[in-house]
Write a protein that binds this DNA or RNA. Structure first.
Lengths: 111, 111
DNA sequence: TCGCGTTATATTTTTAAAAATATAACGAAA
DNA sequence: TTTCGTTATATTTTTAAAAATATAACGCGA
């Protein structure tokens, strides 16, 4: 280890039944939906396909009795999507964990 | 969050120049090489192809002036592979970090 | 009632990753 | 000098993931 310098990095996520439920990518998607009110716009911003975004949202929703994202089609603007209270709590919780993890990485970064 | 219980999980790894250099899979490979003295046996144990194992080792070695794995072909047993002192230090360092990370996960696991 | 932009979904195509296959090089030991 | 099991490497094949394409449903507003 004397001859190179490395840094510690990592990822955290939330699991349900040992299955990944929410990581930093999905949280970003939720936040962008919240900000734009649109799945399509959020997907475009993150350079993923609408389908991919929709699948991710459906996957997250499937873990909850109450959905995290509610969407409507038709009407003014063509449709819209909103984040529920449940979803806002989820985003906030993940940010808390993420922030603690960031501190952990700083504490343990290479010599 | 009231309606489901989740657990926190994650992964850590060492980076060099923003590139992943060593994670828990590669460490396990190094340990199995150390234990068996053979790249092939280590690969078989981890159910990966010899090529895959060899590529991983080469990749790790490329970050160091002194190699982490030294291998010889031919001779008794057909050939062998050994872990250098450099490699042993690397494995140990990763274990330390991994153990600290494990503690972090426990501290922050779901309510 | 028609157009618009979005949600929702299925299907096809493309791309990238993984696995499989093949083969040469090697040195000890029989 | 031949056999053996491994290291080392290239090439081909298979598989899985991602991307692209297509199309229907929807409801507001013009």
């Amino acid at each position: 280890m004397a001859d190179i310098s490395y840094t510690l990095n990592g990822r955290i996520w939330l699991e349900v039944n040992g299955e990944k439920m929410l990581g930093h990518g999905r949280v970003e998607l939720l936040e962008r939906i919240q900000a734009s009110g649109s799945i399509r716009q959020a997907a475009l911003q993150m350079k993923m396909s609408y389908k991919q975004a929709w699948d991710l949202i459906n996957h997250i929703n499937s873990y909850f009795e109450k959905p995290v994202v509610i969407s409507q089609r038709g009407g003014k603007g063509g449709g819209k999507a909103t984040i529920t209270e449940e979803g806002r709590k989820l985003i906030e919780k993940f940010h808390q964990l993420q922030s603690a993890f960031h501190a952990f990485l700083l504490e343990n970064k290479g010599e």
